[in-house]
Amino acid sequence: MPRLVNLYPSRGSALALGALPFLILIAAYLFGSAARLAENPDDKLLPAPSAFVDTLKSYAVEEDRRSGEVLWWLDTGASMKRLLIALAISAFIGIVGGLAIGALPVVRSLLGPFVAALAMIPPLAILPILFIVLGLGEVAKIALIVFGVAPCIVRDVSLRAGELPKEQLIKAQTLGASSWLLSTRVILPQLWPRLIDALRLTLGSAWLFLIAAEAIASTEGLGYRIFLVRRYMAMDVILPYVIWITLLAYTMDWLLRLARARFFPWAESR
């Protein structure tokens, strides 16, 4: 019998093991739902699976009677647009700021402490300021996400730049690299994988800030819908939306991981 630390499951059993917690959760839900509904057919807390099918139909297939839109896709489109724009802006700030801070000691002295302080401000605490200054429109919501995510990405990417072996940077200079070439041909290419890692890690907080902003001031969006139907205790809407959000976030994470392996194969084997 090998030690437990050396016991690796086969491919098939790894899949089965991975699925197990999900299956247990689903089974527990079905069991709990059935038990509660048997006691009180009007129970709203754990709706029966059939209720989800009805919701999905009325939200994701049929048009809303009042607005004429298919709400599910309207909400998804609005939220994804905000999130993707905010993440793109954050990634841009992250790579440019991280490179400048990591590569140039003068910029590090100038901006290092400032970015570190920015990253410590709880973004939700300045949400009111954003709403007052930028209005209740899209800009404030995107700004909240950028504010919450970009400083962390800048710090992470600049840390990576600082970790590059000194030997490498000296070697590049003996090959005739200027500051510009050293930054663009030696340092920058080695920061991309870390940018992707940083994006993956901040994805969770990006969603958090998105939903918070939508819950407070919005007319559509996944977070808006969840908080709207909360008033009616509509668990049959909230739960599918939560699962959908989870699925979207998981897919984004997976795509980023795929992109890293595809575009930066040299950073994989370690």
Binding site: P165, E167, Q168, I170, A172, Q173, T174
Partner: peptide, 16 residues
């Protein structure tokens, strides 16, 4: 500068 080359014991290749 390029008039003086260096070979360290390690870490001087560009991994990317």
């Amino acid at each position: 500068g390029p008039d003086r080359g260096i070979v360290f014991q390690r870490y001087s290749l560009f991994p990317h």
